[in-house]
Write a protein that binds this DNA or RNA. Structure first.
Lengths: 250, 250
DNA sequence: AAGCAATACCGTACGATATACGGGAAACGG
DNA sequence: CCGTTTCCCGTATATCGTACGGTATTGCTT
């Protein structure tokens, strides 16, 4: 599969930041609005996965003809961009507590977001749409980190690294939590394959460190628990490291 | 859009770990081998992007009929799985120096890998194919981290968190380094949109922290440089944090 | 030498998908 | 009532992945 999103960025921008031009009143009144299309697309992707979100099905779920969608959106890629920014706008970015509390709050919110919208992990996070959702997130993180006394470049890099880690970890965690419920691929197959792999194929002699970790109980947890632990430990370590850098500056 | 990879995991396993059954000699001799198909697919994706790697074009590049590919591979998803593991097998995992040196070596190798195979960022890293490449990587990381004296669960979580961060950061960096050279989307558009955005749309009053960071020169660097800085700083912080955890255990 | 079994090759056809095109319908102002 | 504007949507096309079934080429057996 490819990645979704990343339509013509100029088109996407125009849709994300609509100029407040009032409708002239002339012409046929719309049956659907852009907002409703995006909302319906998200609902469809939430329920059946991103692959099932086809223009045909989306139009049907709105009770309109397929080509009607193209009066409101230049193409599917731009629509996915809008879905992504709309999702980000759901984040509760209330500020409270120390910078660290704020970052951890962001991490939790991000987890919940991926839980609600599992399709987010199927959309590339590189070169995201420059919408209000993304900007609000950046603003939140930069504000939280700016209290640390790092240089502007370091603050920016720290923010980016947090975004990178948290997004990736949340996506992984959501994948395992949802456990293929919707992912378009039967989870039983995956588990069966995993079983077969460990019992039949895995060669302990060739991968001693893995064997050792297994023996020491490092893999006793379910994949979902393991992902959650990796999320927690990684975030803690990352923030500890950033805090230490700030300490050094003072 | 969508993500590639994630074919039937059982089929993929069978292909990743071929049993050493010698060909009987009977039957028509193959014109192509699985290895050649995977190599050609990677070359095609390297040059023209993953979206351009269609079964038709792949077959043509091998001088074979399209359906011939299906004698060697159950489907495209499985083929992408094989490409991914094959890419990971390119990592040079020579061990030398401290645990930290080893992790940093891994990070550099991973960067180079994404540089060579930009399409990797379009393939989901969740639930990766359990092939030799993935196992070698896990073994390398677990071995490096096992010297720290953490518990087995912590070691495993630390390894996972490093994988999460490094993969995501390397993918982001490669995206910006390649600068749309091949990504299937003209980079000029993106830059133009970015320009327009900052000059026309961005509202400083609404996003004070971003405005402040901009004013302080936090965005003076190119996106590629910024991504590289985020990679460096994030990895440093993450490893500092893990080292501190290990310190505390002793 | 002739038949047979096994294996690989591949042309054709089908269903799914995004979307270009162009005509038709509904509202408004004049 | 007519022209203009805006939106709706049926039809058609190009691109994919791949199911199906027939064909070609080899070694083995007799």
């Amino acid at each position: 599969m490819e990645r979704s999103g990343d339509g013509d960025p100029r088109q996407t921008l125009r849709l994300l930041w609509p100029s407040p031009q009032a409708r002239s009143g002339r012409g046929r009144p719309p049956k659907v609005s852009l907002d409703k299309i995006v909302a319906a697309a998200m609902a469809l992707a939430d329920r059946d996965g991103l692959a099932a979100m086809t223009m045909d099905r989306l139009a049907a779920s709105l009770g309109v003809g397929t080509m009607t969608l193209y009066t409101h959106v230049p193409g599917k890629a731009e629509l996915v961009d809008l879905m992504v920014d709309s999702a980000w706008r759901e984040l509760d970015l209330t500020r409270s507590g120390s910078w660290r509390d704020q970052i951890e709050h962001y991490a939790k919110q991000n987890m919940a977001l991926h839980e609600r919208h599992p399709w987010l992990r199927n959309v590339s996070t590189v070169r995201p749409p420059l919408g209000p959702g993304l900007l609000a997130r950046s603003d939140f993180l930069l504000a939280a980190l700016s209290t640390l006394g790092l240089s502007a470049a370091e603050t920016s890099a720290a923010s980016d690294s947090i975004v990178t880690f948290v997004d990736a970890a949340a996506a992984t965690l959501a994948e395992h939590t949802h456990a293929g419920r919707v992912s378009g691929q039967s989870d039983e197959d995956w588990w069966a394959a995993r079983q077969v792999f460990w019992e039949t194929i895995f060669d302990p002699a060739r991968y001693p460190a893995i064997e050792q970790a297994w023996h020491d109980g490092g893999f006793n947890r379910s994949p979902a628990e393991a992902a959650a632990n990796a999320f927690d430990l990684g975030l803690r370590a990352l923030l500890d490291g950033i805090a230490a850098m700030a300490q050094r500056v003072r």
